[in-house]
Amino acid sequence: MGIISWNFFATGTGRSMTTITSNADLIKALPIRSEILVVSAVIHALFSHSLEIVVFVGILLWTGITPMLIGIYFFVLLVSFIFTLGVGLFLASVFVFFRDVQQIWSVLTRAWWFATPIFYAPSSTGLGAKLSLFNPIYYHIHLSRELLIYQRIPDIRMFIVFIGFALVTLIIGYMIFSKLRPNFVALL
């Protein structure tokens, strides 16, 4: 579950980053709202993620687990979509100005990957547990595991913090994107 959740974030942000530059001809020639391209990149990642979820649910059913709480999981997925979109908008706009953001992001995501409890369970105490509370991906993975694998309703505070992370990220990402957008045509 951890790797599937991480893949959605990594694919969504990776695709978003290059979507403005790879559609430079469109942006320079047509009056389109360029944020639509970022939304489409994240939806593309969501589609791939949905296929992975179908396979994952199949494995759960095969092992005798019926994911009864999958409806709530779709809500978690929506929040994760908002968070990924916020990061994607930020990366897409900054990448137009600085092309080495791709290399920097790849190093950052590798560090983030190791810091996220993807292949290991987070400790309940200590520095790791405290750091996880500031990691939005941790919330996505934890909530997904609770809902799909352990069939438990997670702590409502986890939902609230995750929604908070997603909304703040989307607002900041969109503000930066809107601020930088008028310069896209000149730089592409």
Binding site: I27, K28, A29, L30, P31, P182
Partner: peptide
């Protein structure tokens, strides 16, 4: 590009009425 709405002017205004189709770069799109 200002008339097409692809760029926004730094100062002044550009207004159009009706459906605008732009062919700024051939084969684009």
């Amino acid at each position: 590009r200002l008339i097409a709405g692809i760029l926004e002017p730094d100062s002044g205004t550009v207004k159009t009425r009706g459906k605008v189709t732009s062919l700024i770069e051939l084969s684009v799109g």
